[in-house]
Amino acid sequence: MLLSVFSCNSEPSIQDQMVDNPGDDGQNENPDEGEELSYKEKAFATYEMIQQLYKKGDLYKENFPEQNGDREYSYLWPYVGMLTAGNVLYELGYDREILDKQFTGLEEYYDNRDYLPTYQAYPVSGGATDHYYDDSAIVAMELINAYELTNESFYLERAKTVTDFIMSGEDSRMGGGLYWFEGQSDNCTNGPNCMKAANTSAYAAYVTSKMYQLTNNEAYLTFAKRVYEWTYTTLRDPSDNLYWNDINIGSEQINTTKWTYNAAMMIMSAVNLYEISDDQEYLDEAVTTARSAHSKFTKVTNGRIFYPPNDSWFNVELLTAYIQLSQYDSKTKDYVEVFKDNMDYAWENARNNEGQFYEDWSGNNEGRFYWLLHQAALVEAFGRIAIYENQ
């Protein structure tokens, strides 16, 4: 996934995907103080705020206010946050037009090349950029969600096309797994981006297992099991059952950074594989990772348990995983309640005068409040809870 300051020639390191970059101090005032809104209403109110501040034609700006180096439109990664918003709001009963608008804009990123067409990192009108396996996977997830919500064949057929690209990111180097992006794939020999990554591999396992559930194509299931197993055996830290970020092909060194979303996608992939196979081992692995993620990624701040004060979109992926797992594991419902408390606190204590949420939901640091992705994450979070609670 591509942060806005990167161009296709800058070869960003995966470690730079998410970095602390606090903004200037701002006033911590709640624009809707006194209003008692449901989670469903909070999701829509956050979406409306984004329309007012970030919307640009059929697409969105990367940041509000604009940051140094911003291009005309956002990169694909934060745009997919708005695809999620469209799907979630439609599932909650809001107008179908919201979903349609997001997917219409998505086509601006589609590179309809002859070989393995997929979505590129920046709108095609802005020139050629690279094709990221994780970006394509999160797009595929939303195409799948849109298909399940609308039953329109376009979404499933496009998901098949994108999944073909995703699956091309795997080869036998380092025993398997997926590269981060196409430009640093099978011909690379060194450098920080010449590696196999937990995020691409876990997302690929999730997407292909979902595609199997929809199509019964055995090739998807074979791939999902293989890539899940590679990630589990190669990048899992056996001391805590969380996942290291990547393994470098040139040096064979493991980047031991751990992110909430890598845990999330392995939980979600394992749940899918459990549902397909009825193999209890997959569910046990999901539960073990969920327990550890709650223990390792939380700390007490302002007298409350909070998930990490940075990278809120990553954290919301973990919320989504907990919700999926909670139907099989009642303890996971407690973790969802912690997220709800975090979100409630953020609504009251971690927004600025424009209604933008701080990156740190405890309200102690604005962080990169200006980034579209961090705002889209709250539409998803409130929406997921509203669906979870049948609002």
Rank of each mutant, 00 (worst) to 15 (best):
R113G: 12
T150W: 11
S153C: 08
E366P: 07
G303D: 02
Q280L: 13
Y388D: 10
G250F: 13
M343I: 15
S185V: 06
E72S: 08
Y39H: 15
Q120Y: 09
D334F: 09
G57H: 11
E35K: 15
Q324V: 06
A205D: 03
W180S: 07
N63Y: 02
T189I: 09
W347L: 04
S13R: 12
E91W: 01
A270P: 05
Q102Y: 06
T150R: 14
Y322H: 11
W313T: 01
A202H: 03
E252S: 00
T288F: 07
G363A: 03
F165N: 12
V207L: 04
I323H: 14
V338Y: 05
Q67N: 08
Y179F: 09
N241Y: 14
L53W: 03
E359L: 01
K331D: 13
G250E: 06
A381Q: 01
F103D: 04
Y179E: 01
Q15P: 00
P309H: 13
M49S: 07
Q17E: 04
V338A: 00
L325G: 08
D237L: 05
Y335E: 01
R236M: 15
Y110E: 07
S292N: 04
K55F: 12
E281I: 15
S277C: 09
Q15V: 03
S136M: 09
K160E: 14
K340N: 06
E66I: 15
G175N: 04
F6A: 13
D16A: 04
K61I: 07
S251F: 01
A43L: 10
Q253L: 07
E72I: 15
L242K: 08
P192Y: 08
E148V: 14
R113F: 11
G367S: 11
M82N: 06
Y232W: 11
S209D: 10
N193M: 13
G303E: 00
A85F: 10
E380I: 05
L106C: 04
A140N: 00
W347P: 05
R158G: 15
A43C: 13
Q391F: 01
I267T: 01
G191N: 15
L53F: 12
S209K: 00
Y132E: 06
N349E: 09
P31W: 14
T222F: 02
P12D: 00
G105N: 11
N30P: 02
D134Y: 02
E348Q: 15
D279G: 09
Q67G: 01
K225P: 01
D360H: 02
M141E: 03
L2P: 00
S277H: 02
K331T: 14
T161W: 08
T129V: 13
E66D: 12
C8W: 11
F306L: 07
D32H: 11
T150P: 08
D16L: 03
Q324G: 13
L89E: 09
Y370E: 12
Y243W: 07
M141K: 00
Y388N: 09
L373F: 15
I267P: 04
Q51V: 07
E359M: 10
A263R: 00
N190K: 13
P31R: 10
F64M: 04
N63V: 07
S201Q: 00
N241I: 05
I166Q: 03
V287K: 15
W77Y: 11
V338M: 04
S330N: 10
T46F: 02
Q51R: 14
V80I: 15
E354P: 03
T260I: 03
D329C: 07
G57M: 12
S312I: 14
K61F: 07
